[in-house]
Amino acid sequence: MKTLRFCYDLKIEFSSPVTHHSFTVKCVARSDERQQVLQQEIRILPKEYLSENQDAFGNCYIFGRTDTEHTLFSVAASGVVRTGLADSTAEGDTYRQGVYLAQTAYTKPGPALGKLFEDLRGPGPEDALKAGRRYMEGLRSRFAYVSGSTDITTTAEEALTQGRGVCQDYSHILLSLCRQAGIPCRYVVGMLIGEGASHAWVEVFHEGRWYGLDPTNNTDVCEDHIKLSHGRDYSDCLLNQGVFTGFAGQKQSVSVQVWEKEPE
């Protein structure tokens, strides 16, 4: 068990003023069996109104709009979360998890993923968590972390074919393998202890519970992870989305810091 502090900062700079900016922000940590949110604050600027809602997957999100002309849009979230309270989270009935079993545009296997699945598949029946861990282990020698080698549109098949990628690609590949094996699994966005950007990992459904696997670091999800959202793939967990009026280039920067809070 750890008590973690986090700061999530998103900035979008526009090259010329934009207006009628509608946005949706999905960077709200929620308490579950694994983590307890002790404190949380989110500031979004500029805004005319803000509203909170829950999406189809149970994630909390904030939406709003601003009609004021602006060249900077910023989201600053911070809080304190107690993590590592359990190794998994309970979920309802198995027959309702089918939505996490269907391949998506990001995870759909092609020849490379099909072959990898054949190479890694177990000799006999085994449970979902063991299988998930073996696929994760198998990825270690076959896929390399190279930042900037892929972008947000890269599919699991494309990433695997070139053999390099980032946490998003590791996660999509693991999802694709688990789904080929008939294991319901989902994409998770969150934060990891240290400094950098947001992080992504996978949860597999095993005996009525969701277990986190972090394929980028080849480890089970532990007390160093703060979860923000989950969905079928990257597109369900966008941290930030927006439409606006204006003819402008945009530059987005994200900075995430997570550190352990000193015991009081």
């Binding site: 009935d93 027959y95 089918g98 939505v99």
Partner: peptide, 29 residues
């Protein structure tokens, strides 16, 4: 919502989730 027709296996799951008309965004509405 409850998906009882899938639980009772009247319709195979893949006819729902592989259908382009199924919108996961509408879950729970």
């Amino acid at each position: 919502n409850k998906k009882h027709i899938l639980r009772d296996k009247v319709i195979p799951e893949e006819f729902i989730y592989a259908s382009s008309g199924y919108l996961a965004q509408c879950e729970g509405v």
